[in-house]
Computed example of a mutant assay.
Amino acid sequence: MEREPVPAPADAAPAAGDWMIRFDQVVKRFGDLTVLDHLDFHVRAKERVTLIGPSGSGKTTILRLLMTLERVTGGLIEVDGRPFSHMPGRGGLVPANEKHLRVARRKIGMVFQQFNLFPNMDVMRNITEAPVRSLGRSREEAETRGAELLEMVGLADKAHEHPARLSGGQQQRVAIARALAMEPEILLLDEVTSALDPELVAGVQCLLRDIAQESQLTILCVTHEMHFARDISDRVLMFDRGRIVEDGPPEQIFGEPREQRTRDFLQAVIEAG
């Protein structure tokens, strides 16, 4: 797919706002379908931002671009003040190659809707394999950290179980520990409780609230759980058709939304619940 040209920014240093994530006129198309339409948005370092909106509005595409599972069609993504989707080339910036992306995404961890654990590995191996292979940690060092993380997520006694012997909620806790084991600066959460049985949702949400409040992570979350969005967020963005409709603190978005589209969406969520 042909990508729109991107000029090099005048200064690659972090902006005065200290943005950790910056989307600058980002376009993402799948064939004739425009999923993100010249999107501008920013997330500050250590800020917790939640994306809400109807299915198909582009929320998960944002996370997939940050995980380099998709490439931008146009525009520029920066992470920690440096080009992420692109890299320096002759005459400006050019689309990033795999080496650039591999280094750039080390700052980012993601917890997916589906747990994506390796079924042939026990819990400890699921958590430690990437730190050993990608971060160069010794097996002993990785397992020490893995034990700490399992303690934190309440699964200290499950280190040598295989995923098939765990409940959905336990598997998602392992996935959270695995993401944190990579020592990310940014944590992406993609509908992390939507695949769980209702009685397991509260426990995982409580764990993530504790992580959000106690860590120094920048968190970008996509969820249809409005109570969770209210609790975990410093800022909430309402998306529709690849654009931001409304941007504000959770008490304003959920208490006094300014835009009719936001009010309609929240009313539909309440009625569906």
Rank of each mutant, 00 (worst) to 15 (best):
M1Q: 13
R3N: 05
E4A: 12
E4L: 15
P7C: 01
P9M: 08
A10V: 14
A10L: 12
G17L: 04
M20V: 03
I21E: 05
F23V: 07
F23K: 03
Q25A: 13
V27T: 14
V27H: 12
K28G: 09
F30V: 14
G31P: 12
D32N: 14
L33F: 13
T34K: 04
V35C: 13
H38L: 11
H38M: 12
F41Y: 11
V43C: 08
A45M: 06
A45G: 12
I52Y: 08
S55A: 13
S57F: 07
K59R: 11
L63K: 03
M67T: 14
L69K: 02
R71S: 12
T73G: 01
G74T: 03
G75D: 11
L76A: 10
E78K: 14
N97C: 14
K99I: 11
H100D: 14
L101W: 03
R102P: 09
R106H: 11
K107P: 04
I108Y: 00
G109F: 03
F112L: 10
F112N: 00
F115V: 01
N120Q: 14
N120M: 00
M121D: 05
D122S: 09
M124C: 04
R125W: 04
N126V: 06
N126F: 09
V132S: 09
S134N: 15
L135K: 10
L135I: 06
G136I: 11
E140G: 13
T144L: 13
R145P: 10
E148T: 10
L149V: 09
L149D: 03
M152V: 06
L155G: 06
K158P: 07
A159L: 10
S167R: 00
G169M: 01
Q170N: 00
Q171I: 04
Q172T: 08
R173M: 04
R173D: 03
R173K: 08
V174P: 07
I176E: 08
A177Q: 08
A179H: 06
L180S: 06
A181M: 00
A181L: 07
M182G: 06
E183R: 15
L188C: 09
E191R: 09
T193N: 10
A195K: 02
A195P: 02
L196W: 01
P198F: 07
E199K: 14
L208M: 09
R209Y: 09
D210W: 01
D210M: 05
I211P: 07
I211D: 06
A212I: 03
A212Q: 08
Q213M: 15
E214Y: 00
S215T: 08
Q216H: 14
L220S: 01
V222N: 02
E225I: 09
H227L: 15
F228E: 08
R230G: 04
D231F: 08
D234Q: 07
D234V: 01
V236K: 09
V236H: 04
L237D: 04
M238C: 09
M238D: 09
F239C: 02
I244Y: 08
E246G: 05
P249I: 07
E251S: 13
Q252T: 15
I253T: 12
P257H: 10
P257M: 13
P257T: 10
Q260P: 07
L266C: 06
A268S: 15
A272P: 01
A272F: 12
A272G: 02
